[in-house]
Design a protein around this nucleic acid. Structure first.
Lengths: 223, 223
DNA sequence: GAATTTTGTCACCACTTGGAGATATAATGA
DNA sequence: TCATTATATCTCCAAGTGGTGACAAAATTC
């Protein structure tokens, strides 16, 4: 018969594992993913590094359990995300605008999220590949819903959105590190956010407008 | 009287300095900036690391002389960059489109350029801050020229451009590492480039169109 | 109580890092 | 030819890396 797992006050496997996992988060937040190693992790967890090997195999596996436990897979706060169907009449324009804005705000407010993104584009690791792929999987149904409206137009909604998404990512990553201006827009200011949001909305507006124009032209092919 | 600098076949200061500087480039290209250190640099240069300290002070100074010697300051191939004035009638629309496209192609074809950008957004180093600031300085006159056209409109050309520039950066950085799709657009394909270019042109077109509309409305304030 | 198993620490290994001092040697000037 | 000087290498150091085996101590079972 298997022996009961010790759950004493001083020796408690699960508690120690949690300490190690949380230490990973602390290090990413304060020192960056580059500093993730058995020694640092064990030190910040206040525990022997030997346990990392015993409980997780190695540092990578431990990091993996941390990253997969967080919701970096989506990057959106799923709570304030009303269903897209709610906005059928505007073909999801408002919903997309909301998503892009909340992505911006999430990146702006979460140093950890920024660090993870930088991590993704810095290394060719299997872990980061998975994180990236899962984000794609998350976006798929949203893109599928947009196709209904844009398929009949000349607009490449995926092309437009990758530019906007990439722009949001980069602008926030840029401010994270060097801190200088970008396109002469001051860094990390309310002013910048306002300007980016306005431009974002304008581009989306034009995109939908153009697609709408092409749709009506299609219905009434007379010049 | 100062002694002549030795220029022998075996002992030649300038040649050795060049070897070290070039080694920096090799490492960035093949292993990434994270691997830049006295030991690696000296090894790839095939020279004693002591010389890095004698000739440059430390590794950072050596790296600085390398980076400043390259044209990462601008990121555009200045050769095919016709003067913007050439296109006064379209208010620089074609010139901007050309610049954005050539930036995309430069990032696409140069792993080193991508690595430098990742470097910029990864670390808070003085060197990378300077690189970033100089790029800003390079863009300033271009932005200034656009103001003449956009100032009287509601369009925030700097906001639009930071989204587009950031988008171009991110799309290429993303493909560099994980390699997965982005917004369901396949990676590093001619297809992707075509789609991004088309979206880029569309957004620019809408931007200029809208600004033009507001300009004529201004001239004839009648509704 | 004693025996056993799990949890945890510690000391150690080989290796790499940035950096410095001692020393050898090639290039120069006489 | 021989001393001087700049160039280059070599060895050593302390600190940090990932990883492991020996051992202590707590929790469990008998």
């Amino acid at each position: 018969m298997a022996r009961k797992i010790p759950e004493g006050e001083f020796r408690n496997k699960e508690r120690t594992k949690l300490k190690l996992i949380q230490a990973v988060g602390v290090i990413i937040r304060t020192e960056g993913y580059t500093k993730l190693g058995v020694n640092r992790i064990a030190d910040t967890a206040g525990v022997s590094k030997k346990l990392i090997y015993r409980y997780f195999g190695n540092a990578d596996k431990l990091i993996e359990t941390y990253v997969k436990g967080e919701d970096y897979w989506m990057m959106f706060s799923t709570s304030d995300q009303e269903p897209i169907e709610e906005s059928v009449e505007d073909q999801g324009q408002a919903a997309i605008a909301r998503m892009l804005k909340s992505l911006y705000e999430h990146l702006e407010s979460s140093p950890e999220a920024r660090k993870i993104i930088v991590w993704e584009i810095s290394e060719k690791s299997q872990l980061m590949k998975e994180v990236s792929q899962n984000r794609e999987k998350f976006g798929a149904p949203i893109l599928a819903q947009l196709d209904a409206f844009f398929d009949s137009s000349d607009i490449d909604i995926r092309g437009i959105l990758s530019l906007l998404l990439g722009g949001i990512y980069y602008i926030n990553l840029h401010s994270n590190s060097t801190g200088g201006n970008f396109c002469e827009i001051e860094n990390q200011s309310e002013e910048r956010k306002k300007r980016i949001f306005k431009s974002l909305e304008a581009i989306l507006e034009w995109t939908y407008e153009e697609a709408g124009k092409q749709k009506t032209r299609e219905k009434t092919p007379s010049k």
